[in-house]
Computed example of a mutant assay.
Amino acid sequence: MDYVDITAATGTAAKASAEAQKALSAYPNPTNGQGLNVRLEAAARAATVELVNSLSQRVLSTSRNLRAGTNQFQLATDRVASGLYQLVVRGANQPLLVQRVVLN
């Protein structure tokens, strides 16, 4: 499985990071707990979007049918505890995109 962490910042990882940053963004970050807006550039496909805590536990998961191009949606985070999480996008036979997010 391919993995791209958009927080990487050195060497070849910096180039992959820049490409991934164009593909996935979450805002506001940090968020106030009301919701996390997600913007994702993708090919048409089914994907799973998850919030994963520092113990690698999935605390929020939703399935999305992405269309080719820009996809925007909101994740309700009002029932998720404050902390540092990873926003993870998984698609069948597609790279994994990850962005760190902070929920207040």
Rank of each mutant, 00 (worst) to 15 (best):
A76F: 01
L36A: 11
A76H: 03
E50C: 09
L55Q: 10
T77R: 14
V38M: 12
Q74N: 13
P95H: 10
L84E: 09
S82Y: 11
T12A: 09
L84Q: 08
A44M: 06
S82H: 11
R64S: 14
K15Y: 10
Y27I: 00
N93T: 05
K22C: 05
R39L: 03
A46C: 00
S25L: 05
T7R: 10
G91P: 05
L55D: 11
V4I: 13
D78F: 08
R39D: 09
A14W: 03
R79Q: 15
S25A: 10
Q21Y: 03
L84H: 07
E50F: 14
S82N: 13
A14G: 02
Q99Y: 01
L36V: 13
N32M: 00
M1W: 09
D78H: 11
Q86Y: 10
A23I: 09
M1C: 02
G35Y: 04
A68L: 09
L75G: 05
T62I: 13
V59E: 01
L96W: 09
Y3Q: 02
Q86M: 12
A20Q: 03
L84Y: 06
N53H: 13
T12S: 10
A8F: 04
K22F: 06
G11H: 01
S82I: 11
V98C: 04
V59L: 09
A16R: 08
V4M: 00
E41Y: 12
N37D: 11
V59G: 07
G35A: 14
L75W: 14
S63V: 02
L24D: 05
A68D: 15
S61G: 11
G91K: 07
Q72V: 13
R67A: 13
N93R: 05
N104R: 09
A9F: 04
Y27V: 02
V101P: 05
K22H: 11
